[in-house]
Design a protein around this nucleic acid. Structure first.
Lengths: 356, 356
DNA sequence: CTGAAAGCGCTTACAG
DNA sequence: CTGAAAGCGCTTACAG
C-alpha cells in the first residue's frame, strides 16, 4: 500500500455566512469612526501623532470590524516590508535548524518576518534577484556565496546583507562568523596536551571559509606544539562522505600502530558519521582514537556520542547579525562590518583528556 | 573572553556609483521599449497576450535596465502574493527541518515562497492574524492547533489552510497526516510477534492527535494479540522529559524481571533519549529492552542508535499538502479534505525481531 | 492634531 | 494585440 493515499472527502461546506468578499480597509474604519482615513493610518503607525480620543474611536471601530492593516499596501507606500530573507542550505546539519529557530524568533520579537529560501545549489543569483522582488528589508545569507556582480547590485539597491557563518574574501559584505581559526587552534592545543601524536583532519567543503579557517587554526596550533597534520580526508560537510573519508583514513590501519590517534572533524554532523564508522571498524572512541567536532549541535550532548567539540555561540552570532541588520535599517545606510564571535571548547568523552 | 565580540570595522565604502535611488519600474521599461506600461506588464504575466516582437522589445529594454517586476505591487493589485505561510514549532525534532526543507523546495518549484513562523507557544491566534496581514495565499500549520473562532475567520477570508501532521477534532479544516493509528498497531503486531510480553508506551504530548492515534493503534494491536499496555509515561515530545519518563519506567526495575521488555516511543526524537537513558541504566537494547520509535528521521539510521521505527513518508505528505493548497488556489475555493498517508515499519536493530 | 490628495508599482477590465 | 485609466490599500508631505 506504499505510496497510496486515502482521501476522505468531506461534504461541501454549508452555504458561506453572509460575509462580504470585500476586505475591511482603513476607509471602512474611518467611516465607522467618523474620522479621516489618514487618522486611521496614523493610529496604526507607531509614533504618529493622533489625539487620544481619536485613537480610541479608531481602535474601537477597528475592533468592531476586525480590521488589520494590509501589510502589502503598507510596504508599497512605505518601502519597508518588515521581511528579512534568510537563505540556507543543508538543514541536515542540525546547526542550521537551531539557527533558523533562534533567528526567526529573534526577528519576530522586533516585528520582522522571515522569508525563507532553501537552496542546495550554487545558483544563488537567480534566487536573490527573486527575493529582491519582494522588497525584503534585509538578507541573511547562511548558504553559498555571492557573486561579486550580484553583491554590487544588492548594495546599489541599498539592501543590507549579512553573511552568516561564512566570510568573504572580498570583504565587501558584512559577515558574522565564529572564531574558526581560534577554534582549530584550541583543538590542536587540547589534543597535543592530551599526548596525541598523530592528529588527522576530516575537512568540510574545501572552498568554504569555515573549513579553511578551522584547518589553518589546527595546523598553526599543531606547529606551535611541534606537530603537524598526520593525515587528511575530505567530507564536504556531508554525512555519507564523512563516513567514507573516515574509512579512507582508518580502513587499512585498524591493526596498525601507525594509524591516527586523534581526529578533528570540521563539523559535528560529520563527526557523528566518523564515530559510527570508527566503531564499525572496531576502534574505540576515545581509547583508540580521540575525536573532536565543531559546532556543538544538540546531538553532540547525546549519550551515544558525548562529543568533545568546539561550541559556536549561535545566540551571539544571531544577536550580532540582527543588530547589524537593524542598525543599517535604522540608519538607512549599508555598512560593512566583520564580527567574529568567540568559541569555547566543550570537553565531553569522545577525546582523551590532557593528563595534567 | 566568552561573550565578547571582536568588531573589525571596514572603512566606509567609496562614494556610491552614479546609480539613481529610483527603482526601475515598468514605466521606465515602457519608455525605453516605446510601448505602453500595460504591454510591459503583460510581457511579465504568463498567458497574457502580447505580440512576439512587442515582447522582444520589452524583454530587451528590461534586460538593459535590470528590471524585475515589483512583487509587492503585483500582490496589491492582483491579490495573489505567491507566499505561503508555514507555521512550526519544535525544530529540535529532526522531522521538522526535513519537512521545512522539502516543503520549501517543493513550493519554490511552483513559484511560491515560504513565510516562516516559529512558535513555541500556544498563542497561534495572534500569529495567524499577523500572517494574514501579508496576504499569504495559503497556510501550512505544522504546529499547534487552531481556535475554532480563528479557523472561521480564515475560512471567511477564503485562505486555504492545511494542518500538517495533525488532525483536528472539528474536521472543519483540511488535514494531512500519516496513518498514525496503523503505525501504532503495526508496532504492536511487530512486538507481539517478537515475543514481547510487557510493552510500555512513552507518550508524546497528551493533547496531540498524533500521540492519541499512535497510542490507540498500539492498544488496539496489543489487544488483538491478547496483550495490553504494561506501563506508560509521558515525554511530551521533548528530549529531556523523555529521558525522565524512561527513568520513571525503568529506574527501580533494572534488576527486576518485572520491568518492560519493550518500549514504543511516540517519536524518534524521544527514542534517542530513551536509548541513552536505558544504556546509562545498564540495560542493553535490544537484548534487555526492545525499542521502537516513530518518524524515521535521518538520525534513526545512525549507527549509534540503529532505530527500528515507523517511517512517515514526508515526501508524500508534502506532495498532498501542496497539491491541496494549489488546487484550492486554482479553484479559488476552500475545501476540506483529510489525507492519510500510509506508514511503513523500518526494522533496524533496536528491537528484537520476530523469531520466525 | 487633522484631512485632502498624491503617490507607491503593479493588474485588469474596457474599448478599440 | 494594444493603450488609457481606474484601482489595489496604504503612507506621507503639505497646509491648516
Amino acid at each position: 500500500m506504499d505510496g497510496v493515499m486515502i482521501m476522505t472527502p468531506i461534504p461541501p461546506r454549508p452555504p458561506a455566512p453572509p460575509v462580504s468578499k470585500h476586505n475591511v480597509t482603513s476607509i471602512d474604519v474611518a467611516r465607522l469612526a467618523e474620522v479621516s482615513q489618514s487618522a486611521v493610518s496614523r493610529t496604526f503607525t507607531p509614533g504618529a501623532s493622533v489625539a487620544p480620543d481619536t485613537r480610541a474611536r479608531v481602535l474601537e471601530a477597528a475592533r468592531k470590524l476586525g480590521y488589520r492593516p494590509n501589510a502589502i499596501a503598507s510596504t508599497l507606500s512605505s518601502r519597508r516590508s518588515r521581511m528579512i530573507a534568510v537563505v540556507l542550505s543543508n538543514m541536515q546539519n542540525q546547526f542550521y535548524p537551531v539557527v533558523v529557530e533562534t533567528l526567526s524568533q529573534r526577528l519576530q520579537k522586533d516585528g520582522y518576518h522571515v522569508l525563507l529560501f532553501i537552496t542546495e545549489t550554487e545558483d544563488a543569483d537567480e534566487l536573490l534577484l527573486e527575493l529582491m522582488r519582494y522588497q525584503v528589508d534585509g538578507i541573511v545569507m547562511a548558504s553559498t556565496h555571492l557573486s561579486s556582480g550580484l553583491a554590487q547590485q544588492i548594495a546599489d539597491a541599498r539592501i543590507p546583507v549579512v553573511m552568516f557563518n561564512r566570510t568573504s574574501s572580498k570583504g565587501s559584505i558584512s559577515t558574522v562568523s565564529s572564531d574558526n581559526f581560534g577554534g582549530g587552534r584550541a583543538v590542536a592545543y587540547f589534543l597535543a596536551a592530551g599526548g596525541h601524536q598523530r592528529v588527522a583532519y576530516l575537512a568540510g567543503a574545501e572552498d568554504s571559509s569555515t573549513n579553511q579557517d578551522r584547518e589553518s587554526g589546527l595546523c598553526a596550533g599543531l606547529a606551535e606544539r611541534g606537530l603537524r597534520v598526520f593525515a587528511r580526508a575530505v567530507g564536504n560537510y556531508e554525512f555519507e562522505r564523512a563516513a567514507h573519508a573516515t574509512r579512507e583514513l582508518f580502513g587499512g590501519l585498524v591493526a596498525s600502530a601507525d594509524r591516527p590517534d586523534a581526529l578533528f572533524v570540521a563539523s559535528d554532523h560529520m563527526a557523528f558519521a566518523a564515530i559510527d564508522t570508527l566503531r564499525a571498524l572496531g576502534l574505540r572512541v576515545p581509547e583508540d582514537v580521540s575525536l573532536v567536532g565543531f559546532d556543538d549541535v544538540p546531538q553532540a550532548a547525546w549519550g551515544a556520542y558525548s562529543l568533545t567539540t568546539i561550541a559556536q555561540n549561535a545566540v551571539s552570532m544571531i544577536e550580532a547579525t540582527v543588530g547589524m541588520l537593524l542598525q543599517q535599517l535604522a540608519d538607512d545606510a549599508v555598512t560593512r562590518d566583520h564580527v567574529v564571535v568567540p568559541i569555547r571548547l566543550v570537553s565531553r568523552t569522545s577525546a582523551r583528556l590532557p593528563s595534567s
